[in-house]
Design a protein around this nucleic acid. Sequence first.
DNA 1: TATTGTTTGTAAATATTGTTACAAATATTG
DNA 2: CAATATTTGTAACAATATTTACAAACAATA
Lengths: 283, 283
Amino acid sequence: MTVAEQIRSQFDQLTPAERELANTLIANYPMAGLGTIMELATAAKVSTPTVMRTVKKLGFGGFPAFQNALHDELKQTLSDPIDKHDHWANDVPAEHMLNQFATAVTNNLRQSLKQLDHKTFDDVVTLLTEKERSIHIVGGRITHAFADYLQTHLQVIRKNSHMLPASSGLWPHHLLNVNEGDILVIFDVRRYEADLLELAKLANKRNVKIILFTDQWLSPITSYATHYFSCRIEAPSGWDSGVVTLFLIETLISAMEEVLWPETSSRLKELEDIFDFTGRFKR
Amino acid sequence: MTVAEQIRSQFDQLTPAERELANTLIANYPMAGLGTIMELATAAKVSTPTVMRTVKKLGFGGFPAFQNALHDELKQTLSDPIDKHDHWANDVPAEHMLNQFATAVTNNLRQSLKQLDHKTFDDVVTLLTEKERSIHIVGGRITHAFADYLQTHLQVIRKNSHMLPASSGLWPHHLLNVNEGDILVIFDVRRYEADLLELAKLANKRNVKIILFTDQWLSPITSYATHYFSCRIEAPSGWDSGVVTLFLIETLISAMEEVLWPETSSRLKELEDIFDFTGRFKR
DNA sequence: TATTGTTTGTAAATATTGTTACAAATATTG
DNA sequence: CAATATTTGTAACAATATTTACAAACAATA
């Protein structure tokens, strides 16, 4: 039973001043009840004790209790409609790693998306599709695989994307090939790597645009990055999860593809022809 | 500019405790900010002064001012007849690639988990944790990155895991190092690669146990595999999504870690020490 | 390693809110 | 119309919330 229903059901038992209150409360429900008891009293043009008596009459212990009820209701109304499946896998107990991980991962995704500024996303898509800029990609110990994945896909949809060598000793040398206005994509999640930070500083000095993929605690590279994505990486284990990071990479690729479709389609065609020729793939 | 946007835009200038607060605030926005300053502090596991400082940093005069801003926003949201709550990302149209992709990915996850036999999962965990077997990992053009990711993690929690060389010409040679009872983890999604199939046949002949990660259409290697996982890879674009594949890899790793914890912990400790020594990581 | 600056929490002080007691105002009844 | 009951608001009080001051913990730097 909602607070509004409670008010309506007892409306006829209220005194004139109390009805005044009830009316203003319902008139802009539930906002009117979210402030202080004084604000509500003023809005209804009654005194605070009247409010007090009314909420008690309605069955609440006091004004805070009444307000909590409103809060709980609001929570329901605003709560995510995205189903919280407590059981993802069939016939598997909820404590099974599969279910735990599925829950954690979707939470990560939901929260990361809430924090993501979509303008950042769109700006990055624009940057990455400007073909006069060349792209350079680098990752850390764990994130190296993501850098690899991004590169594999970028290669197909545009020219001039390169992986930085695995050995950090070669990075300064490689930076000579990076021009002002070029893009450096860095993956850096905890524990943040000192070499990557140095690289970012150097690149920043050369006016290279830095796009950073990091975690919710933000790598120190953030200060040097033109744009950054913070992907939540919580997992029910000692490990971190890269699922959200991968999600973002793939979404970026898809968004880029939309923009670049004319060029992409012909590149893809060429690629298919080459693979057909080499016979590496099953038809 | 909404409070949420204000938080996002200044997120990188916040201190760790302040970020903690910002995260919980955004995670269940705006409900978390509607109670008292103490409730918010408790929810975020910080002290009330931290909340105080944060809201001032965000540009509000004090907590009540901050709360009023939330109230005003909420008023807007609640009077807005358009249901904004169907979206993953805030303030982004439903047709935006971010929302489309998020929906697709969670559907993939749900469906993949429905089809997954958890006994297969548990059996694979058992197989991979038997340390007398050595593990060999190989991926295709796209899936190479996943093979890499798996290897990076396996390396930490157990001995004797190896990546097959990138060039398929070297695989037959490498197979000589693989003994009966060893494990070959293969990643093969469409378009299925002929070389990988040949490799699987050879390995099968040598009584190597094959664990296969493939898509919902099942690679031809499935017939030679001891266990296989089919991960749905549908995406709203010409590309396939590897999110479910990564999810499974990470879940496997976590499950293995649970089993192997005694050994893992000491290996992890060693690893940390080495990294500390080399100074590659920020503390 | 000592020094400095930053971050964070504890605890006291201040302000505000919620509650109660009581009296004035209003309505009700004989 | 007076007596009584009911309703309502004023003002004091108590409880709680917000803010500030300060000190401990922590990280950065020399």
